[in-house]
Design a protein around this nucleic acid. Sequence first.
DNA 1: CCGATAATGTCAGCATGTTGTCATTGTTGT
DNA 2: ACAACAATGACAACATGCTGACATTATCGG
Lengths: 146, 146
Amino acid sequence: MHSPKRLLFLDFVLSVFRLNGLLISEGDAMTEKLGLTSARWKVIGAIALSSKGLTVPGIARVLGQSRQAVQRITDVMVSDNLLFYQVNPRHKRSVIVTLTDAGTEIYNLLREVQDPWALGTTEDIPIEELESALRLVRRLIQKFDK
Amino acid sequence: MHSPKRLLFLDFVLSVFRLNGLLISEGDAMTEKLGLTSARWKVIGAIALSSKGLTVPGIARVLGQSRQAVQRITDVMVSDNLLFYQVNPRHKRSVIVTLTDAGTEIYNLLREVQDPWALGTTEDIPIEELESALRLVRRLIQKFDK
DNA sequence: CCGATAATGTCAGCATGTTGTCATTGTTGT
DNA sequence: ACAACAATGACAACATGCTGACATTATCGG
């Protein structure tokens, strides 16, 4: 038998690989004028979206990456004065990564590019399709994230 | 206004990043016993799926990657005797990347792991949802792939 | 309270992707 | 045919991710 489902899924997997690469390119293009890169975009986004302070391993958990990879990025962003490490009252060694004023400003500028991009990209896509696809992606993430 | 669509899409984007990482991990785990990695998995899959012979830049186009990245992988796979470079009658310098017998054998072994993985992962997902999500991903790829 | 376990920071090595550059080879339009 | 342009191979520099290893610090169970 041919199992169209198997082929469909493999096609989906390859397409996710490809979309991932294209999204990184989009992120790089969007953030270029702000002196960011897609990796820094991810980190700054994770921090800005979290209500409570995040530690480096915390950001890594949100992004699904290794803490070492995140640490490398945040170290550079601290020396670029976009972030600073704030004393964590709940943990002596694990500091809280916080946006500096400059970092907040960059994030606001970022949103001025990012928001129109998000809206423009999805303007001809029904919200139901987006929700449905997100549910599927989340379901797969849950399956693999153990 | 809050524009739930914008937030929905950004959530989708972050989820794609995360799924991408998890799929690479899955690929690494699946191919480990075969002496492959996810990068080689992609290349060997692209070659096996193409009816005509593919050149290195051709594989790169299929995968949506730079030809240099693919070249590096294929060079290693040639020295590992999984691939060989075949004279291309249509181009004096650009050789055709071909599976050796050993490479074909690995690919067959790979399928014995990959097919159950694909079926198992999707067994509780309706085929319509998969198709719908793939359509959306393809649509985004088309939008960004210029 | 104390020992075992988990979490964190740090450093190192490596895999995989990017871009840039340059010489060479193909292709195409006039 | 020839000149302009595109595609390819090769090499280099770099960004971003991974894992492993080790010391230190927190947390938890007895």
